[in-house]
C-alpha cells in the first residue's frame, strides 16, 4: 500500500515540476514585452519619463535579470506561496485575482462534471437494455460528444440567451449588482450560471452515455455474465454485476477527462464572459501578464493533479484487482 502510493506521489511530484516549469516558460516565449505594452497604454509623452518607468517596472517585476535567475526566483517565491503581482491589474497580487475567480470556475466545473458523469452513466446503462433508447440516445450522444465546447456555448447563448431571452448571455451576475448575500444577487448569480453550466454539462453527458452503454454491453457479453445466465441467475443480478464492473473504466475515464473539461471550461467562460479562471487567462494573454498566466496555469495543474489523485484512491477502494496488485500480485 505504502509502496503503491509512494510511487504515485513521486510521479505526481514529477508531473507537477514539469508542468510548472512549462507554465513558466510558455509566457516568456510570447513575442513582445509586457512592460512596454503596458506603458504604451499609459501613452506617456515624455520619453525620459517612459524610460525611467520602464526601468522601474522591469526592475520591480525582476524581468531585467537573466532567465535562469528569473526561473529560480519564481520557484523561490512559489514555495513561499507568492505568485507575484499582476501586470494587467497592477498592483493586485495574482493570488487575490485567482481567489476571486476560483469560486466561479469551481461552481461551473464541479456540478457539470459530477452531474454529467452520473446522468450520462445512468442514461448509458438504460440505453444498453432498451432498443428504443439505444436508437435515440446513442446518435444524440455522438453528436453531443463531438460538439466543440465553445460552439455549443455560442449556440446556447444565441438561442436561449439572445433569441429566447430566457437567460442572460454574458457575465457572472447582473452588472448593476454588488456581490452580497441577498436574494436578488443569488438569483442573478444562478441565472447567469445556468447557460455556461448547461453547455459544459451537455458536451460531457454524451461521452459518458456512450462509454457506459458500450461498457455495459461488453460486460453483459462477458464470460462471467454468460456463466451466471447459464446457471439461471435472474436478469437483475447479471445486470447489477455488469453495471458495477462497467463503472470501473468510467472512473478512470473521469480522471482522463478532467483536463479536457477544464480546458473546455476556459473556452466556455470566455464565450459567456464568465469571471472564472478562463476569463483571467484570456486577460493575462492579451496583456502579456506573465505572473497571472503562471498563477492560473499553476492552479489548473494543481486542480487536475489533485482530482487524479483522488480518483487513484477511489479506484483502489472499488477495484479489488488494483488492491491485489498493490499487495504484491496474485498468489
Amino acid at each position: 500500500m505504502r509502496k503503491y502510493f509512494g510511487r504515485k506521489i513521486f510521479v505526481y511530484l514529477l508531473t507537477f515540476f514539469a508542468a510548472v516549469t512549462i507554465n513558466w516558460m510558455i509566457p516568456r516565449l510570447m513575442p513582445g514585452d509586457p512592460i512596454k505594452s503596458r506603458l504604451a497604454r499609459a501613452s506617456l509623452t515624455d520619453a525620459t519619463a517612459a524610460e525611467a518607468l520602464y526601468e522601474y517596472f522591469n526592475n520591480m517585476f525582476g524581468l531585467d535579470q537573466p532567465l535562469w535567475q528569473q526561473y529560480l526566483n519564481f520557484w523561490w517565491s512559489l514555495l513561499q506561496g507568492d505568485l507575484g503581482i499582476s501586470i494587467w491589474n497592477f498592483p493586485t497580487p495574482v493570488t487575490d485575482l485567482i481567489m476571486g475567480a476560483v469560486p466561479y470556475s469551481l461552481g461551473l466545473l464541479l456540478p457539470s462534471i459530477i452531474l454529467s458523469w452520473f446522468v450520462g452513466n445512468w442514461f448509458g446503462a438504460y440505453a444498453a437494455r432498451s432498443k428504443w433508447l439505444d436508437n435515440t440516445i446513442l446518435p444524440l450522444g455522438y453528436v453531443l460528444t463531438a460538439t466543440p465546447y465553445m460552439w455549443l456555448a455560442l449556440l446556447l447563448a444565441w438561442s436561449l440567451g439572445i433569441v429566447a431571452g430566457l437567460f442572460p448571455a454574458a457575465g457572472s451576475y447582473g452588472l448593476s449588482l454588488q456581490p452580497a448575500f441577498t436574494w436578488t444577487f443569488i438569483s442573478s448569480l444562478l441565472s447567469h450560471w445556468f447557460l455556461p453550466f448547461l453547455s459544459l454539462f451537455l458536451v460531457a453527458l454524451g461521452g459518458w452515455a456512450i462509454g457506459m452503454r458500450n461498457m455495459i454491453i461488453y460486460e453483459l457479453e462477458s464470460e462471467y455474465s454468460n456463466y451466471l445466465q447459464a446457471l439461471g441467475a435472474p436478469r437483475r443480478l447479471v445486470r447489477r454485476y455488469a453495471f458495477r464492473n462497467a463503472m470501473l473504466p468510467q472512473i478512470t475515464g473521469l480522471a482522463v477527462q478532467l483536463g479536457t473539461v477544464v480546458a473546455g471550461a476556459l473556452l466556455t467562460e470566455i464565450v459567456f464572459s464568465y469571471q472564472g479562471l478562463g476569463y483571467l487567462i484570456l486577460q493575462a494573454i492579451q496583456n502579456q501578464d506573465f505572473f497571472l498566466l503562471q498563477g492560473t496555469f499553476l492552479f489548473i495543474v494543481i486542480g487536475v493533479l489533485i482530482a487524479n489523485f483522488i480518483i487513484d484512491v477511489v479506484y483502489v477502494l472499488v477495484d479489488p484487482r488494483v488492491r491485489v496488485q498493490m499487495q504484491g500480485g496474485a498468489k
Partner: peptide, 24 residues
C-alpha cells in the same frame, strides 16, 4: 428454462478461468 438451469441441468463452461465475476 430458468427453472431447470443449475438445479437440474448445469454447466461447467469452457471458460472456467474467467467464469467468475472478477470484482466479487
Amino acid at each position: 428454462m430458468n427453472e431447470f438451469r443449475y438445479k437440474r441441468i448445469s454447466l461447467i463452461p469452457q471458460y472456467a478461468m474467467s467464469a467468475m465475476n472478477p470484482t466479487r
